[in-house]
Design a protein around this nucleic acid. Structure first.
Length: 220
DNA sequence: CCCTGATTCGC
DNA sequence: GCGAATCAGG
């Protein structure tokens, strides 16, 4: 996905409105939170209360205080809205995480509700939330352990002392865990620790093909 | 652990 | 210019 004029406009607008980079990324789609932040900075728009910013200091800048013209900026947060607690704000279907069911940003005072391609509406605490459709009736039944996993180390067998190295892939019928004696202080046995923990090389010299397990790129 | 924005740097 | 990786605070 590329940065078309429209997408840049939306980015600017939402950024100015105080949406977080994640919200913007979700809304735009096809880009990561990092991409949004990177773009925002390249566009020059920034100056936002950052959790990591406020205390600005340099290590090597011990001397030469005169050189800097000392551009003092008040940096008054234009967004002075009081975080009025919104009563139970159910996530809209578009933004709910189906699998986990966990609301992603319940603390946000502004939500951007998509109204289709190219549009969204800002929704403040006072606004009405469209009623969410009731979930279809479901009866949950316990899964029966398949014979393949009978003797293997399953999720429920995990504890601090045994190796949690996954064998196979989640969802596969015989997915299980290593189950060996764990290396004390580590989640894996000695052997798997050797695979899991490797010296950090400079990015330049790193061998891309990452070690197992999983290895699949994160999918959204 | 989750979140956040900032920064770096290979591409 | 782009954005993943990383950093660092809450």
């Amino acid at each position: 996905m590329s940065w078309t004029d429209e997408r840049i406009e939306r980015l600017k607008k939402m950024w100015a409105d105080g949406a977080t980079a994640s919200q913007i990324a979700d809304e735009l789609g096809g880009v990561s939170r990092n991409a949004v932040i990177g773009k925002a900075h390249r566009l020059g728009l920034e100056q936002r209360p950052s959790p990591v910013k406020p205390g600005e200091e340099k290590k090597a800048a011990a001397t030469a205080p005169a050189a800097a013209a000392a551009p003092v900026k008040p940096a008054a947060p234009p967004r002075a809205e009081t975080p009025a607690r919104t009563a139970p704000a159910p996530a809209s279907p578009a933004q709910s995480t189906a699998a986990t069911g966990t609301p992603q940003r319940p603390q946000a005072e502004l939500q951007y509700r998509s109204i289709g391609p190219g549009g969204f509406v800002r929704q403040g605490p006072g606004d009405q939330q469209a009623p969410i459709p009731p979930a279809p009736p479901r009866r949950l039944v316990p899964a029966k352990p398949s014979p393949e996993v009978a003797d293997k180390t399953g999720l429920l067998d995990l504890n601090d002392r045994i190796c949690k190295w996954p064998i196979g892939h989640p969802g596969e019928p015989d997915f299980h865990f290593c189950g060996e004696q764990a290396n004390p202080g580590f989640p894996y046995c000695v052997q798997h620790c050797g695979v899991a923990y490797q010296a950090q090389l400079p990015r330049r010299d790193r061998r891309p093909p990452p070690p197992l397990p999983y290895g699949g790129p994160r999918v959204r």
